[in-house]
Design a binder for these strands. Sequence first.
DNA 1: AAAGCCACCAACCGCGGGAAT
DNA 2: TATTCCCGCGGTTGGTGGCTT
Length: 230
Amino acid sequence: MRKPCCEKQDTNKGAWSKQEDQKLIDYIKKHGEGCWRTLPEAAGLLRCGKSCRLRWINYLRPDIKRGNFAEDEEDLIIKLHALLGNRWSLIAGRLPGRTDNEVKNYWNSHLRRKLMKMGIDPNNHRLSRKLPHTCNSSTTSSGLRKNVNDDHPMINSGGDINCDQVISDSASCLENENSRGLPDLNLDFSSSIASAPIFNVPDELEKQNQNDPKKELYSVSASPTLLLFH
DNA sequence: AAAGCCACCAACCGCGGGAAT
DNA sequence: TATTCCCGCGGTTGGTGGCTT
């Protein structure tokens, strides 16, 4: 039998001190990442392995890009969220130097509001019923089709992406938005960060798909969506 | 100047998948 | 085959600082 992850009564919680950070950095520089369970003791830290892993991945890793998100990063997050939903680790994987936690926080604090201001429901990327303005009626009536199995409109219960729905909504809304001088979401994937090949379906997703039929939607549906976005 | 409110973000918690036993 | 544990993920919380009243 294995030991539990950590003896919780013996571990520190809360903010990390500079000394703790340094111990973690030094240890990982020497021994590399991994073995989070044994790392704290080996590194002389009174933390649980989970806490060490989080601190390293979200804050201490040398390749982390800190600071504000660029506009193209924002656009990319919005587009990927429309495709993938709250799969923050997958979204962050397409944004070099960004962590899932950072992307999630940024979404919740900035991008959700931004979309809502534009009259787009951030949960499903459709036009909201409570619009700050009115889009044309035909778009609205067809665009609010309820998906009872999944709040995410682009992913139905069968694992396919209802991209046409969202795209027509977004496009028609954007037409109106642009005519009013409001920001453009720029739904052209091809213009996003060059260093992050987005929809050459990532290897890791391919592998996941092979093992997990539920995840098939990532690769199967990405291509037609791209075509429509273009 | 103080109190209240809000936004941001680091960190924690609980859960699920998969590997190890 | 069943059980246990590790790892990674997404949701949520709590501390902090800035802004408004």
